[in-house]
Structures are given as structure tokens and as C-alpha cells.
Amino acid sequence: MAPKQVRFKCLMCGHEYDGMYDHENVTERSCPKCRSNSIRRLPDAKVAKS
């Protein structure tokens, strides 16, 4: 699976942002706003709907 652009959501402050996701090489996530690591990668279907 090639790295792709996905949408992340911080479950601490609610901030959403776009970033790269590589299934083979997962990297540490941290909210650009509040620094929390509770960053959920939103499923593609959910992003499309919103």
C-alpha cells in the first residue's frame, strides 16, 4: 500500500487536519494544536461524507 493523504482528528481538542499515512511505516502522531497523541485516522468513507 502506497502512502496516501488522509484526514486526522484529534480526540482531545477536536482539531482536524490532513496528513500522510503509510501503512508500512506508521509514524508518531501529535495534534498540531494541543499536542495530544489521541489522533484518529478518519476512515475514508467518513471523510467523503463530511
Binding site: L11, M12, E28, S36, N37, S38, I39, R40, R41, P43, K46
Partner: peptide, 22 residues
């Protein structure tokens, strides 16, 4: 954790009740 958040979401459980910190 990504899998768990998706599961909680599907079941209608608030996802932010599961948190992750390094």
C-alpha cells in the same frame, strides 16, 4: 487504536472515551 476507534464509532460509542498518549 485506529481499529478500536472505528469499532467504537460503528457501535455508537463516543470515540473520545478511548485516548492514546505517548
Amino acid at each position: 487504536m485506529d481499529r478500536l476507534w472505528n469499532k467504537l464509532d460503528k457501535l455508537g460509542i463516543r470515540v473520545d472515551r478511548l485516548q492514546l498518549e505517548w
